[in-house]
């Protein structure tokens, strides 16, 4: 595993995103949906904060990031180009890491334009920057976790649509279990709450950066990428 080969794979993947119209469609949809839902209630409530934006973000990420990541492996399996990639002098870990980083960076670029919202809001009222900074830090971890899930789902199938459905389902599940705890038996709630990405995200988004939440995200990313590695190994 070398940083050089990871960088080359990552660069190629990242460029490929932007050579197809798909990337621009995803970015546009993401910005329209987040912008619309956030500002639809923003002026009604009349509070200068971004709480609603960060409440909305996990569920939108749960669908947009799988759409970004779905092609990473699936397309290569389908066209057979994976055979060329894998027989170049790189390890499987290089390939997975390169693809993962490309997907993560794309998600962050998708998120970047929303940084104008807090700047805009701060002109309207007295914005508390703590939760905003926390929210964006949480968003980076969230994008990291969902990208890893997207890469994993993509490595399980050669059909992009199936990959999307698998990863969107996992991301959706991890997002909504926090809200559906009332329906579940009480002895499970602690565990399921800990499992939920949106729970940890909301902790960070409050502006409290706790090591437990960071460890949760890092563990999730590591385990998912490791599963991807095992699936790739199994394939050969």
């Amino acid at each position: 595993m070398t940083a050089r080969s990871i960088a080359i794979i990552y660069k190629r993947e990242f460029k490929t995103f932007f050579t197809s119209p798909g990337a621009y469609i995803i970015i546009s949809l993401f910005l329209i949906i987040t912008g619309w839902f956030f500002f639809a209630s923003f002026f009604l409530e009349g509070r200068a904060d971004m709480r609603n934006f960060f409440a909305l973000l996990p569920i939108i990420f749960a669908f947009s990031i799988p759409a970004v990541a779905m092609r990473l492996f699936s397309e290569e399996f389908k066209s057979g180009s994976f055979e060329i990639l894998k027989t170049l002098p790189v390890t499987e870990l290089d390939i997975i890491a390169g693809k993962y980083l490309a997907s993560l960076l794309f998600a962050l670029i998708m998120l970047a334009p929303t940084l104008v919202y807090p700047v805009f809001i701060s002109t309207l009222g007295d914005l508390d920057w703590g939760p905003v900074v926390g929210g964006y830090i949480g968003a980076v971890f969230l994008a990291g976790a969902f990208s890893a899930i997207g890469v994993f789902a993509s490595s399980t199938t050669k059909n992009q649509v199936v990959a999307f459905i698998i990863s969107a389902s996992i991301c959706f599940f991890l997002t909504v279990i926090n809200q559906s705890l009332v329906f579940l038996p009480s002895f499970l709630t602690g565990f399921l709450q800990y499992l939920s990405t949106s729970y940890h995200f909301s902790n960070v988004a409050k502006g409290i950066i706790d090591s437990r939440d960071i460890i949760y995200f890092l563990t999730l990313i590591f385990l998912t990428l490791y599963a991807t590695y095992l699936i790739n190994k199994e394939r050969s």
Partner: peptide
Amino acid sequence: PESSPIYP
């Protein structure tokens, strides 16, 4: 590889 599967 067979049929030269290059990134299209």
